[in-house]
Simulated scan of single mutants.
Amino acid sequence: MNPLRAFYVVARTNSLTKAAKELHVGQSAISKQLDVLEKYFGVKLFRREQRGISLTDIGQELAERVVPAFDQILDAAASLTERSNDSKIRVHTYTTFAAKWLIPRLEDFHKQYPKLSVLIIASVDEVNFEKDRIDFSIQLGRGTRPGLEVDLLFDDIIEPVCSQGFLRKHAPETAYPQAVLRTRLLDSHYRPKSDWLMWAKACNYENDIADTPHMSFSSSVLTWQAAMDGLGVAIGQMALLTEDIKEGNLVAPFHQPVRTGLSFHLLRPRVQREARKIVLFRDWILAQAAATRPYLPDC
């Protein structure tokens, strides 16, 4: 590769002097590399002339293939370097997670690191780090992903939530919150009825929800908004609703949380040297997750 690289620079600049300067070596070193290449191929690639050198016909044919190939290699390397050194941090995650947990906390990150910006790619599709230009992915699962670095953020804990007004209207006796389970159950396309069944089975409320009508929404964000607006009772992912619970937008009347067995994890490619922006964002989001965990209900 070294002789080919020397050939590439000489063919592109048409000058030993310029090639030596670009590669930070002497002209004699360049000449030796060209001699190695000519002996390897058994052909003359350059004509040594009084005013310099020029490509032979065979040398020109080789240059027409080698020069574009090296240009592509340099472009690829430059692209990767730019990706590592730019100020954007690309985070792939679910719309619900972004809206309810990540975005409300981003102002703190920007205050600490004003020269960095976070670009959120909202998608339910599984990320492909080899194909997609993504720095991090936040996903709900069991945390085992070969070839990736995985950090635990917090466990997925669910329980019913509704508005205070809805609770007062449909379960005025605080000792019997199960009355709300016979009104209307709200669920989302990505958090289906199985969440209700899991919670009800764990807490012995299967009979209470057996005949209750459901209203479905395209996302959990809409489902929880519907609960805030008094349309029914929803299954809440408590890690994403800590602020709504603290502000009184939602209440959890049963105080019977259930772990789903899944957790939110921060995923990133496994590399030998991580860019500074990657280290800073990882440390920041792990600190934010640690600050969230004390607000989660005990199961």
Rank of each mutant, 00 (worst) to 15 (best):
A11Y: 02
N14R: 10
A19Q: 03
A20H: 03
A20C: 09
K21M: 11
E22H: 07
I30C: 07
E38V: 04
F41A: 13
G42T: 02
R47A: 13
R47I: 10
R48S: 07
R48A: 07
Q50S: 15
G52F: 03
I53R: 07
G59T: 05
G59F: 03
A69L: 09
D71N: 14
L80I: 09
D86N: 10
K88D: 15
R90L: 06
T93C: 10
T95F: 13
F97Y: 13
A99C: 15
W101S: 01
E107P: 06
H110E: 08
L116R: 04
S117T: 13
I120H: 02
I121Q: 12
S123R: 03
S123K: 03
I134L: 07
P146L: 06
L148C: 05
L153F: 00
D155Y: 00
D156I: 00
P160G: 08
P160N: 11
P160D: 07
G165I: 04
L167I: 02
P172T: 06
Y176H: 13
A179G: 15
L181N: 04
L185M: 10
L185D: 01
L186T: 02
K193R: 09
S194A: 13
L197W: 11
L197K: 11
A200N: 01
A200K: 01
K201F: 07
N204Y: 15
D208L: 06
T212C: 05
H214N: 14
F217N: 05
S220A: 06
W224P: 01
D229P: 02
G230D: 01
L231C: 13
V233G: 00
I235G: 04
A239D: 00
A239T: 00
T242L: 04
D244C: 08
I245T: 05
I245A: 12
I245L: 09
E247Y: 13
N249G: 12
N249E: 15
L250R: 04
P253C: 07
G261H: 14
G261S: 11
H265Y: 11
L267R: 00
P269V: 09
V271G: 12
Q272A: 09
R282E: 14
L286K: 05
A287K: 15
A290D: 09
L296D: 00
L296R: 00
